Simulated assay, not measured.
Amino acid sequence: MTSGTLFRAALLVALVAFPFFANDFWVQQIGGRTLGLGTIALSLVFLAAHGGMLSLGQMALAGVAGYAVAYFTAPVAGVGLLLPWPAAVAVALALSTLAGLLVGLIAVRTSGIYTLMLTLAIAMGFYYLALQNYALFNGFTGFTQVEAPSVAGIAFNTPRAFYGLCLGAALACYAAVTYLATTPFGLAMQAARDNPRRLSALGYHVASLRVAAFGIAGLIAGIGGVLSLWLNGSISPGSIALVPTIDVLMAAVLGGLGHPIGAYVGALLFVIVQNFAIDFIDRERFNTLIGLIFLAVVLFSPDGVIGLARRVRMLFAPTPEKTRPAMDAAAGLDAANDKT
């Protein structure tokens, strides 16, 4: 068993055991919030790592799913319809996937910074739509008193049950992203990222691949949006405003845009600083503190905390030059034994 496999197994055991040793605040507000935000950030990492595309529309796609679940499970002031929660979640994820495809149809016409700005414009357009529309989004107030469902006697509005739900969803999304990277679709996406002209010459439709990737990212963001809705118990235009939109980008960059696990590492760092900034600096200066941390990570490790950890590990890992004398000594010993 390799060291990487051992590390993943130990991490999984720690994640499962975490709610049995932590209090309710850490389980729900730190663990649950990290997994929800990390899943939304994972949708951005998926686009960036496998497709070379940066999007600032992932929080908006999460908001599509969140608003849909709230609309169909918690009507308020005559706005909304009641549906069983499984049907509401299915409709919400279908809508977020469709929204991702629509964003992709527009975004694939651009590249680089233009994709970033275009998706930001789409996100802000959705924010103002939710703010001003009362027939579907209930305007500034949004939807309140949205409760997580109960299944087989398990109430997911309790901290440990909710954490278990978030952990299961996060593991499923992470496994899907890592699996897709090894499929023909994932390999084609990486080829489109590295050399789109050559891939096109081989007969692939690069634009279609990228649109499909936006659809998958919309589904992942939608899952994170539903988890965030159930965590907060409400959703409003403030949930999809500019600050939450940038928060997703910061979490992804802090962890490492090239590493799927980095989405959750960055989200954990962001959530901890967000919750405990008052212990180090005035609450109103939270953005200053997280901004300084962001700058430090970008300056010293452009590929995030995961990249930094890998470089530190490589410093202490045995190199071929270090291991060669030991190997030569072992070979000599074996030869001596053979002679005797």
Rank of each mutant, 00 (worst) to 15 (best):
V248A: 12
A263H: 08
R324W: 00
I246W: 11
V146M: 11
F126P: 05
T182Q: 05
I220F: 09
L292M: 08
S228R: 04
L83E: 07
D279R: 13
L187A: 08
S55F: 03
S96E: 15
V226P: 09
S111G: 05
T115F: 08
V64Q: 07
F156K: 03
A330Q: 07
G225P: 08
V76F: 14
T323N: 01
S236T: 12
M124C: 15
A169C: 07
V16Q: 05
L83N: 04
L56N: 13
A123Y: 14
G168V: 00
N195H: 06
F25K: 06
N138V: 15
F286I: 13
L289V: 14
V273L: 10
L227S: 11
Q132F: 11
N23F: 11
L209C: 02
S228Q: 04
S228H: 03
P159H: 12
A192Y: 02
A14V: 03
I220N: 02
M53D: 05
G63W: 01
F18H: 09
L11P: 00
P237H: 10
R197I: 09
A309V: 05
W230N: 15
T97C: 09
A90H: 05
A277Y: 15
V89G: 03
W85T: 01
G66H: 02
A309R: 06
A107F: 03
M1H: 12
P149H: 00
S150Q: 07
G80T: 04
L37R: 01
G332M: 02
S150V: 06
L37W: 01
G224K: 05
A9G: 04
L231S: 08
T158R: 13
F72R: 00
L227G: 10
I246C: 06
L129E: 09
G256L: 07
L118Q: 11
T340G: 11
G164K: 02
W26V: 11
F7W: 05
L202V: 10
D303W: 14
I272M: 08
F25M: 09
